[in-house]
Amino acid sequence: MTTTPLAPSAGATTSSDGPPSGSRRARRVRRLGPRDITVLAVLLGAALVLDLALVWGPTVASITLSFTDWNGISDLRWVGTENYQDIVSTYPPFQRAVRNNVLWLAFLALVATPLGLLFAVLLDREIRFTRFYQSAFYLPVVLSLAIVGFIAQLVYARDYGALNALLGRENNPIDWLGDPDINIWAVLGAAGWRHVGYVMILYLAGLKAVDPSLKEAAAIDGASEVQTFFRVTLPTMRPINIIVLVITVIEGLRAFDIVYAINNGRNGLELLSVLVTENIVGEASRIGFGSALAVILLVIALGFIVTYLVQILREDRR
């Protein structure tokens, strides 16, 4: 559903979507004076310097580090692609992490995101208690690592957890967190629990902005409510769709805190971000090796961003 906005636009009209220079009038207004250029230079410059110095610079440095063996203290040693070879050949958590990241992304995109959209649509009907519902669905988003970890224990713990008690399985408990074939699903449940709130709140804002007369016009033309939603409402929320898509991808790739809080992302809960953290941040300090893992994650992330940007550029050219 969320991929709709990425589909090539069939409509012939893009004027409000495209650069704001469409009209002649715009061109006249938008001539830049020296003062404008100063403002632009200072503020864009500040943002750029921050971004380049603290984000892109370190990223490039990390790519370099991924070809070294370094514990952060001793001298750097160049090892070429050895780290990458080790990751693929002798590091068993890696493949599970890739699988889990893919699973995570798919689950968020195919289950959690549509559910969030559904909640938003249901809540957009100016019904009573809507603030309560909104707050309830959004609540998981604001919770910190500490309480998410605790809640996971509370619900999923094998012996004293609520879920096994609810299911009446005290005597034959399901090992929600310890069985490596099950635990990823239990954790995805928790991740979805959180993601739905994000998506709902963004779509809620988007839906409120859709002009009601649009829907009414569609209704007059004899479209059912579902048809109206898919043919009118959803496409008009294009900017929100893209934001939700990007958030979903970010969450899928950066997924970290829930598994980290449960068992540091081991025993079936491996994720790339956790492997990077474990190797780089912790006492372990396998900085070269961890950087190589991070670069792999980076390449996957860039795959998504490039796809998206190519799409945008293509639309703009039209």
Binding site: A10, G11, T13, S16, G206, A209, V210, D211, S213, L214, A217, A218, D221, A223, R231, V232, P235, T236, M237, P239
Partner: peptide
Amino acid sequence: MSPFPSSRFPHPHPHP
């Protein structure tokens, strides 16, 4: 693609 003529719909976002 759409059964609705596009010109009928004002730009939705944000409202003038």
